[in-house]
Simulated scan of single mutants.
Amino acid sequence: MIIVLSLPEPLMSFVRWFPEEFSTWSVLKREAKTRFVRPFVRNEIDAISFVDRDWDSLVVLDACRYDIFDEHNPFEREAKRVHSNASHTGDFLRRNFADSYPDTVYVTASPQVAQLGGEFAHVEHVWQDDWDESERTVLPEKVTDRALELADRFPHKRLVVHYMQPHFPFIGPTGENSHSQGSFLNGHRNRTYPSVWERLDAGEADIELVRDAYAENLEVALPAVERLVDTLDGKSVVTSDHGNLYGKRVSPLPVRLYGHPPGIPDPELTAVPWVELPFESRRDITASTTSAAETDSGRTQERLRALGYV
């Protein structure tokens, strides 16, 4: 923080820019550190373009580190280590799915797609109708249910299925018991530490407990993912949009980052799994006119806050 405070004008410019409603010191501190470090991060990553890869169904586990997935991989196929061209869901959408894709249906638990995604044959915003208020996220079973419905409805489209896990909030037993270390206290949003990453950055959370809850979040989601890919026809690939950091120094500067800030091409943050599952035949893909999906902007912001994005 001493380094950041030695640059008052850049920091004050950020403070003036940041929405007043969310201008807690912990958020400002983490964002200022990210902005200060970003120019010094070495970009030597051979990243992939997700949309250009060969798949009929792309299963995206939000914020899933390669090493954690490899440890819990339920499939007989190897999880290859590839590098995403993004360190944040916003980057992922802008760099892979920001154009027009009339041959693709996007099923998403992430509200980010409503703001940053391109045009698709159809977008299914699962977070609108299947949001779980008690968990403050979308449960993986709901995503699988809706994705299978859309696969039947659009049998000649590529399918992107975007799960929210293992991204915070944590929904497993360990995670539910550690909600007080995250963004909610006694059912109410914690204004001092809006997400678990601010708590870790401030030294107010047990990092090993958070790691365990994060891995458990992946384990909770995997049965729903298995049910999906076991049912789908064509070639399915399981991957992630980006990884996650636990206080790594991503540059020569003595600054540690937590979570998955945008614009940080660090290899630990961009390393994601790539699992190509076996198939008997490919889906016959066709294009058609895209259709816009309407979303409630107020509800979008509310659920982005619950997920720790704003």
Rank of each mutant, 00 (worst) to 15 (best):
P173D: 14
E226T: 14
L200H: 08
T137C: 11
S195D: 15
H188S: 13
L218N: 09
R136C: 08
E208M: 14
R153C: 08
T231L: 01
S183I: 08
F170P: 00
T231D: 07
V138T: 08
R158P: 01
F184R: 00
N186Q: 12
G182V: 11
Q181P: 01
R227K: 15
V143D: 03
L222G: 07
G175P: 00
A151M: 05
R227N: 14
H156Y: 04
T192R: 13
W197I: 13
L139K: 08
R191Y: 07
V138K: 02
E226Q: 15
G203Y: 11
E208Q: 15
L150P: 00
P166G: 10
A151Y: 03
D233I: 06
P140R: 05
S180K: 08
T192H: 08
H167N: 07
H179Q: 12
V143R: 00
G175Y: 00
P166L: 12
G182P: 02
V160H: 03
F184Q: 00
R199T: 15
L228K: 01
G203I: 15
E208F: 13
D201S: 15
L139R: 11
E149W: 00
E219L: 15
S195Y: 09
F154M: 05
P169I: 15
L148K: 00
T137G: 05
H188I: 13
T231R: 12
E135I: 09
T231C: 04
L150I: 09
L150S: 01
V138C: 06
P166K: 09
V210K: 02
E219A: 14
D152M: 05
A221H: 04
W197H: 07
V229Q: 06
H162K: 05
L150R: 06
L232P: 01
S178H: 03
E204N: 09
E208K: 13
S178F: 03
T137A: 07
E216G: 07
V229P: 03
